[in-house]
Design a protein around this nucleic acid. Sequence first.
DNA 1: GATACGTGGTG
DNA 2: TCACCAAGTAT
Length: 306
Amino acid sequence: MTGRAPDPALVDEVIAWFDEVRRPFPWRDPDRTAWGVLVSEVMSQQTQMSRVEPKWREFVDRWPTPAAFAAASDAEAIRAWDRLGYPRRAVALRRCAEAIVAEHGGEVPADPEALLALPGIGPYTAAAVCSFAFGMPVPVVDTNVRRVLARAVHGEAIAWSPNPRRDAAEMAALLPADGERAAEWNAGAMELGALVCTARAPRCPECPIRGRCEWRGAGFPAAERTPRRQPRFEGSDRQRRGRVLAALRADPGGVELDRLAERLGLARLVPDELDAETARHRAAADSLVADGLAEREGGRIRLVGD
DNA sequence: GATACGTGGTG
DNA sequence: TCACCAAGTAT
């Protein structure tokens, strides 16, 4: 964390902008619950808010408390998760609900360390729950915030790579002492990164802090390094896992491993490819079992708890 | 520190 | 079209 001290006026201007344009997500309602906030944050991990909103409504309508969700089955949780992605989050969230019931009397703990110890809760989510559900003055740093601070404060085109200690220190340097105001700054910085200071095509003319942006002031210098490329999804094991899990979601009874290829519509491949793909899909099925998303019984595989 | 982990929006 | 990117976490 080198370079100039951050400009505190940034904070006021981002908060003022956020108060005007904030998107009215239900987990921002005054009547929100800490559980609702926690669910929204887990659903939002690597997932755009626009995709989260409809699923979140269904989810918290069905399971309004940690105790309610703890009583569900993993299979129900995975089906409710639908196509949000990273379905392991659904299982982790259910384990999290169980731990909240067992260790915290059914109440989401207002404590960063306690939250961090829960399944599926990392540094970002723990901080987000403390700030947004409980109004604690803690820094919340996601990919948007890293990018906003990299540009506005450090004059760099792209964010530094995630680093919990550095992330917290960078944001703490700007954090208002008042918890409610800190939450506005945390959420405002994220919103700015999501709506204006975007990765690919930033809308600088609309930016509330364009006059204070070091990146703009320096003439928008290009990134000095290129981020790692995301692996191709098409043809990946990730894609195969997704297809196998989709079949299991559709079949409460599970599927015979011998029928997996047929069930997945692989039958029209030429024989060599069929064999290879069948083997890979079986491996994907095994990895789902290893990850606790599915279970095997003899020659059948099904969703956990189905 | 690097890698695996889903699915869909965006330019 | 297609590569990039997304309110990260666990190992």
